[in-house]
Design a protein around this nucleic acid. Structure first.
Lengths: 211, 211
DNA sequence: ACCTGAACACCGTTCAAGT
DNA sequence: ACCTGAACACCGTTCAAGT
């Protein structure tokens, strides 16, 4: 019961402890829960202490993303043809984002996506080059593939339940003001199989650059 | 010089005035400038008055997006083949987003993108059906195209200057820790021609569904 | 070197009260 | 019906002060 409010020294925490706690907090309660005050409470210190160790919210987030980027272990590329191996590398970006929704969302919101995914992007770049591309052609292929993957990620990570019913896509199509085929409207009302749509679409983009 | 602080009645403002002022504010100073307090100042009333008229920040934004959605006049679809017309409709989504960066960013941040772009999506859906698709096939084509366009929009609307140098993509590639060809690294360091990359990539996705 | 308390300048939102 | 003043519960950040 020593509530010892030892005003002053020693909490025994360093920068890494704070980043680790912050990362865990984001994983457990989502990006919105990460506030300097909340993190301080979690660590049982004052906000000022957090500032002393991490600098600012921006630096904290950069550090979280940097750590997560390292944790996203290099995944083995599969496939025998360049086409398959490029596709495999692209899928790794998708998979690791899906497996780490909360932190990936945080990265998207703070513009640190490239920092988070860089190792996986490097792996993709290697396969693109192994397919015979270099220079501007390789850069274009890389950007086209990553941008397409990014589009699917934005869709997959968006929390539909956080959006009011009447602002969601399906509801808008159901209120069919115009001449769209009922069978199409019906198909649009159902939840899409994003994973297989991802496969087909990214494959099409890959095929456009690698053959 | 009548600073008449007529505490109480009559500011002569209605809901539409507020939404219009809010929309103009976002266009002039960006999505971040839109706070209830700032809007109140702009209208020369109290925050409470804004709440009385618009309900909440969420409702205000929905209304902004709804109005902008209507303003985004139906653009004429060009082209003689289904392939060209689908592509033209897809380009309209891109063009109107680029022409209205600030509001589109606001929509992206608040999950109201589908509300904003719905009229243009309907136009795209019509062309997809005119190409001979319906039901699940039409829905898949639509979603694949729109998701790809969305990926490019996220990239194009991201304010690179707001991201610290060392977190940006090019800087990460320049610090080439691995075996990537120097010519590729050089190409990645230059600003991409997003518009033409958009053309080529979306065309590839369109071709996968429409032929 | 490491930590606290108090404060500044912001948020969105609500409530009781005025005309 | 329409508007204000004051307040609540939050933010990120900084500064002077303690040990």
């Amino acid at each position: 019961m020593s509530k010892s409010v030892t005003t002053g020294r020693r909490a025994g925490l360093d920068r890494d402890d704070m980043v680790a706690t912050a990362l865990a907090l984001v994983e457990k309660e989502g990006p919105a829960s990460l506030t300097m005050r909340r993190l301080a409470t979690e660590l049982d210190v004052t906000t000022t202490t957090v500032y002393w160790h991490v600098g600012s919210r921006d630096e904290l987030i950069t550090e979280i993303i940097r750590q997560q980027s390292e944790r996203q272990a290099a995944r083995p590329i599969e496939g025998d043809t360049p086409r398959d191996r490029v596709m495999s590398a692209a899928r790794h970006v998708w998979d690791s984002a899906i497996e780490n929704r909360a932190i990936t969302s945080l990265a998207h919101q703070t513009g640190t996506t490239s920092l988070l995914e860089h190792p996986l992007e490097v792996a993709l770049a290697r396969e693109v080059e192994a397919a015979g591309l270099a220079g501007p052609a390789a850069a274009d292929a890389l950007r086209a593939i990553l941008t397409t993957v990014g589009g699917f990620l934005v869709r997959a990570l968006r929390d539909e339940s956080a959006i009011p019913e009447d602002r969601r896509g399906p509801a808008l199509w159901a209120a069919a003001d115009v001449e769209i085929d009922p069978s199409t409207v019906a198909a649009l009302s159902e939840a899409p199989d994003l994973a297989s749509l991802f496969e087909a679409t990214v494959q099409a983009v890959v095929d456009h650059h690698v053959r």
